[in-house]
Amino acid sequence: MSLYEAIQDVRAIYPDDSESAVLPALRLAQAEYGWLSPDALREVADALETTPAYCKSVASFYDQFHLVPIGEHLVEVCTNVSCAVVGAQQVVEAFEGELGCHAGETSADGKVTLRAVECLGGCGWATIVAVDNHYRTHVKADDVPAIVRELQGVSETHGD
C-alpha cells in the first residue's frame, strides 16, 4: 500500500472535516522515510489537503517526530529523576563512549542516534532505554556495550 493510500485509510477513521489524521499520517510518513523531510511533509500535506506549514507546525510540537535525519537505530535514554537517581546519566555516558557521539547526535557510521528523553513511564524498572521505540528495562551502564554491538550488527530499520 502506498503512503497516500495508507493515509487515506487512517483518515477514514476520523470524522470528515477533522484534522485528526495528521498525527497518524506523520507517523506513517516517518515510518516510510525515517524522518520528516520537507518533501515528506509536503506529501503528507497533499494527502490530507492541508498545508505543509500546518504539518510542520504540528510535527515540531512533538518529540517523537524527527525533522532532521536520524540514524538507522534510535536509542533514547530516560534521564528523568527516577531513572537518574539509579544511574541513567552513567548509561547515557556509556552510550556516548561506545558510539563516539554526544546525546542528541548520530554515530559517525550513521547507525545509531542517541538521545536523552523525558520520563518514559517505566520509572520502577529504571533505567529505561527505548531502543527503536521498544523499552529495555533495568539497563545499567555495563549493559550498554552489548546493546550497541547488537545494533551495529543487526541492520534492520527501526519502527514500531
Binding site: 520537507p38 511533509l41 505543509p52 506549514a53 500546518y54 510542520k56 507546525s57 515540531s60 510540537f61 512533538y62
Partner: peptide, 15 residues
Amino acid sequence: VAINRGAQSVIATFE
C-alpha cells in the same frame, strides 16, 4: 504557523 514547543516556539512559514 508556530514551530517547536515552549520557549523554543517561533513563528514561521514552511521552509
